[in-house]
Amino acid sequence: MRPVANSSKWILGLGVLFLGWEIAGQQEWLGKGLPPISAIVTYALEPRSYELLMRSAAVTATNAIWGFIIGSMIGWSIACSGQIWPALKKGLDTLSTFVNAIPLIALGPLLIVTVGEQLTPMTTASLAVFFTVFVAVLGGFERLPSVHHDVIHTYGVNRWRALILVLFPNALPSFIDGLKLGTSAAVLGAILGEWFGAPAGLGVLIVSSMQNFQITLLWSAAFLGTAMSAAGFFILVIVQQKLLPRFGW
């Protein structure tokens, strides 16, 4: 019964939020910048804007998904490499921290001239994801109790087998936690990458509607971005609930 109770709480919470928003918008409490939610929905459902929004959302989703996949694979591989080649571990950790510390805003223009505007959103999305996943997997490795290290040591001299049989299964829950955080990072990274001059996407829509003062379009695009992050997050929650018990967690 818990999930039902939980989802009804969610719905109630969102309902209260939207109701407050609607009233605030109607009364223009926050000026023209916050239109009532009904106006945003009506606008978004008009055929012309609907089509534009969906087209942009599809582009952003594609960028975010690819960025998410590539970024998680990179984060995961870097964390694993450090276990297999301990000599590299320190260097890889430092490099990852360093890359993560460069603001994406600063990288954007550089990426435009290197990988091109088409690939920039995907790249910024991967960059936003990889570190979260890297830290999560590394944390999972490091949380292995010392007796388990002893077991590995006495039965397995092979680092690959130790990684596959013990370290990675042990890190699986925190890997999935990292992926959960990675979903919103991917959407954010993709939108940010699109700002720098990508041909299409929610990021492009946000920039242009900002410049043309199309408040309802701006809000619709922001909504879609949020919905995308939330959807990704919930997909991973389901994966977590279905997958982890199957692996004995």
């Binding site: 109790p145 002893d150 077991v151 013990v166 299964p169 042990n170 004995g248």
Partner: peptide, 17 residues
């Protein structure tokens, strides 16, 4: 593989039967 150990802590993998 000539050594067998069982320690104070069991050290079983929680995800394995």
């Amino acid at each position: 593989h000539d050594l067998g150990i069982a320690m104070q802590e069991h050290g079983l993998m929680p995800w394995l039967t």
